[in-house]
Design a protein around this nucleic acid. Structure first.
Length: 651
RNA sequence: UUCAAAGUGGUGCAGUGGGUAGCACACAUGGCUUGUAACCAUGAAGUCGCAGGUUCGAAUCCUGCCUUUGAAACCA
């Protein structure tokens, strides 16, 4: 048989061979580093026997897929160590994940000390260097085997495997685990690992089932890589918007006001105002008209929309249905309000498309545990909008929404940091959605075509659609790698019916429009959180709440500094002045800590010459350069003869 | 909602049952009049999350509640 390797070279063997043996045949070093093999694009265990021609890529921990095998084996070592320390712990599952691996156990909660102890035990296991061996069992025997070992979760896993599935186990020394693999040949090959944290997790993600204890860990090929990763973890904690945003005085929370009701402080509020002003003007250019609709409505509205029956728990209800004649609720979405703006007058096919935009504040009574900083809050404001369009305009308008969304991303400088998700319905859970199967399939296909045409890379996710239609979600990850929806564009061919919206066509007949629900900047609070983390607080100048700070060298130059400040403000620049009688070094240090992009130092020399000394945190940034030139021009206006720029340096 | 950890001047932290609860930053007052990352001195500021219990004595131990953080579940 012929084995074609990744580099194109060909190995020929007479007899069947395992991937490991082939690696060994190539070189001993490769065999030591090998973690798995990729056979014709499929990841296979090192023990897999190759008996026919194929393309083989031997994976090591330097490949993403190879690293996963290393981490998976490390999770088995973790499980073995836990079983040694707590023999009564029951095993659930232990996969590798993007950042490492985890293993779930049914046992008492783990403390950090427990984790340290388990880590020590893992080192022992690795030192013993047991070889991992693989074996399979027929279903009944496999179940009996796990029953004998008193592993009820494993029994359940086997029972749920499809009838034709091969049921494999891996053994290392005393420890045996149900597992599909792939795995390393020996625990000895684990060189660098660390247990990160522990937490609760539900068995099979179901909140009605057992609460398991999950241990998260990570593993790398080399100790240096691990050290680097741990340093990175420390680093990202400093970027966490919930910490940095408070330190920078962008927002705060107050116990007596309430959980996850952030107070935007002057700097944070300024940033949001800057974004809001920009997008409101921008949307006007894209043909949007603005509405301003009530923040609450009678329960009757939500009864029509279906929210009263399905989402009452998630709404803030004002009043008591038993006692009060009228019960109100704070709005959790803007849709029906804008529908009634549409319905207020009769529309012709000539009126469409109609693009309604609103800077809309919404209220959602989130469960206490799901709230986080500025990303999951109980009251938030979004750049909401609904497009009422004729079916024949749908594709073009949907593309327009995507184009606007992408313009926002470019403007914020984050277009490279997002992924596009086509969020589809779940055909196995039809009662969660309204509308026919054929409509769902059709609209999903339409969106797929739009994305493909625009050459936007995307992935598809089942069960993520809104109840009324599929959507494109623009996703971004926070510093911890957790994903959130930043922008959403939803295709809705059904709600017009529910609210009896129509237009009169060329033949004088009533027709149902389609609706696009969309955001452009997304949710301001969440977008701000994202920007804080993306820029680690060093925002693009246009977004900075304080763009320029004037620093007089001593009290004597305060008057001149005030003059410079007034000019800057007159020219629409967000500027402040530091009039305290402190040393210039002290003022500069503070400006840098506050991440002010430009400092203008003024002293005797500047006052006499009508100049300022510019100090910038930027180098080579065009926007920043432009602002520097702008400041220069302003200074000219106050009869500045020249600008002495000191070496521009980065913070 | 569940589990875990945490809650101490404005902020970040130290303080494992025994003397009047400390430190840094910030703040105030006075001095210094400053040339590109921290000037000096003095001062004010705490019912140690709330309520109860154990004890001669509790920030510290116990119970309940509230809040925050992490994770899971949830996310129209």
């Amino acid at each position: 048989m012929k084995i074609t390797l990744k580099d194109g070279s060909v190995k020929e063997y007479e007899n069947a061979k395992t991937i490991y043996d082939i690696a060994l045949d190539i070189s001993e070093g490769l065999a030591r580093a090998a973690t798995a093999g990729e056979v014709d694009g499929r990841v296979e265990d090192l023990r897999t026997v190759i008996d026919k021609d194929c393309e083989l890529n031997i994976l090591t921990a330097n490949d993403e897929k190879g690293l996963a095998a290393l981490r998976h084996t490390t999770s088995h070592v973790l499980a073995e160590a836990v079983k040694r320390v707590r023999p009564e712990a029951k095993l659930a599952i232990g996969p590798s994940i993007d950042t490492g691996f985890y293993y779930d156990f049914d046992t008492e909660p783990f403390s950090r000390e427990d984790l340290d102890e388990i880590e020590k035990e893992m080192k022992k296991v690795i030192k013993e260097g047991a070889r991992l061996t693989r074996f399979t069992l027929p279903r009944e025997e496999a179940i009996a085997f796990m029953k004998e070992k008193e592993e009820p979760y494993k029994v359940e896993l086997i029972e749920d495997l499809p009838a034709d599935a091969e049921i494999s186990f891996y053994r290392q020394g005393e420890f045996v685990d149900l597992c599909a693999g792939p795995h390393l040949m020996s625990t000895k090959n684990i060189k660098a690992f660390k247990l990160i944290s522990s937490s609760m997790a539900y068995w099979r993600g179901d909140s009605n089932r057992a609460q398991l204890q999950r241990i998260y860990g990570t593993a790398f090929a080399k100790k240096e890589e691990l050290a680097q990763y741990l340093e990175h973890l420390e680093d990202i904690k400093k970027r966490d918007h919930n910490k940095l945003g408070r330190e920078m005085e962008l927002f705060t929370t107050v116990d007596v006001i309430g959980q996850c009701l952030p107070l935007l402080m002057p700097k944070g509020a300024k940033m949001i105002q800057t974004m809001q002003r920009w997008i409101e003007d921008e949307e006007e250019k894209w043909g949007y008209v603005r509405t301003k609709t009530p923040l609450m409505a009678k329960s009757d509205l939500y009864k029509i929309s279906g929210h009263w029956d399905h989402y009452k728990e998630g709404m803030f209800v004002l009043g008591d249905e038993e006692k009060d004649k009228e019960v109100f609720a704070l709005r959790p979405m803007t849709c029906p309000f804008q529908y009634y703006v549409y319905k207020a007058s009769q529309k012709s096919y000539r009126d469409l498309p109609l693009r309604y935009g609103e800077t809309s504040t919404l209220f959602r009574n989130e469960d206490s545990g799901e709230m986080h900083g500025l990303t999951r809050v109980r009251q938030f404001t979004i750049s909401e909008g609904h497009l009422i369009v004729r079916p024949d305009q749908m594709v073009e308008e949907f593309k327009g929404c995507l184009a606007l969304a992408r313009k926002c991303l470019r403007t914020l400088g984050v277009e490279e940091d997002v992924t596009y998700r086509l969020s589809k319905w779940d055909p196995n859970n039809k009662e969660k959605y309204i509308g026919d199967e054929s409509v769902w399939e059709e609209t999903q296909e339409s969106i797929r075509r739009v994305l493909t045409e625009l050459e936007i890379p995307f992935y598809e996710a089942e069960g993520e659609a809104a109840f009324y239609g599929p959507k494109v979600d623009i996703q971004a990850k926070n510093v911890y790698g957790k994903e959130d929806t930043m922008i959403t564009i939803q295709w809705d061919a059904v709600l017009a019916e529910q609210f009896d919206m129509y237009y009169i066509d060329q033949n004088g007949e009533k027709q149902r429009p389609y609706i696009i629900h969309r955001t452009s900047m997304g949710c301001y609070e969440r977008t701000l959180a994202w920007l804080i983390e993306k820029y680690a607080g060093q925002f693009p100048t246009w977004l900075c709440p304080e763009q320029v700070r004037v620093l007089p060298i001593s009290d004597k130059y305060n008057d001149y500094a005030q003059k410079v400040l007034a000019e800057l403000k007159d020219n629409g620049i967000q500027a402040t002045v530091d009039l305290r009688s402190e040393k210039i070094g002290y003022k500069i240090r503070e400006s840098r800590i506050n991440k002010v992009p430009y400092m203008l130092v003024v002293g005797q020399k500047e006052e006499e010459d009508h100049t300022v000394s510019v100090r910038s945190r930027y180098r080579g940034d065009e926007g920043a350069r432009a602002l520097a030139d702008f400041i220069e021009d302003i200074c000219r206006e106050i009869r500045t003869k020249e600008i002495r720029k000191i070496e521009v340096e980065e913070q």
